[in-house]
Amino acid sequence: MIPHDEGNGTSKPHAPRIGVVFGHPSRQYAPGEELVVRYDVEGVELPAIRAMERTVVWYTEGKGEEDLGVHRFERIDDLAGLAEALPHGTITACLPASPLSYEGVIVKIRWCVRIRLFFVAGRDFVSEHVFEIGAIAPARGVVERVQ
């Protein structure tokens, strides 16, 4: 779990704790498989939450600028929906055929589930949980740098 507060980038003493349990404990999925993730939010009261976003995304890491692709996006900002989605809930998604998780040299592709909480006070808190799609062998190293 990589929780971080994007409000000012520092850990807050009363930051929520978000735990997740993946359907596959190894967090490795095949393309086209169904992803099921149960989450548990602790340390925050429902009246303090203005909205919640549950997403399944991929993003690039490495030397280049980060690219982000959203596979599943769900925003809950009504009281009834929030009462249902907090403090426990489940995220399900049928995973796509691509892009597959990849550990390259200067390009890496990561898949993750993100749970973002928007507080009434205006700040937000995001918790990210990485998983893998496919079984691509990592790149072994640089053969040649192209000029």
Binding site: G62, G64, I106, V107, A139, R140, V142, V143, E144, R145
Partner: peptide, 24 residues
């Protein structure tokens, strides 16, 4: 037969592209 990784990034006001062959 090769695999090339390509990444574009900003360095100051320039946009640079780095390309490496990772498999041949």
């Amino acid at each position: 037969l090769e695999i090339e990784e390509m990444a574009s990034f900003r360095q100051g006001t320039d946009t640079r592209t780095e390309r490496v062959i990772v498999w041949r």
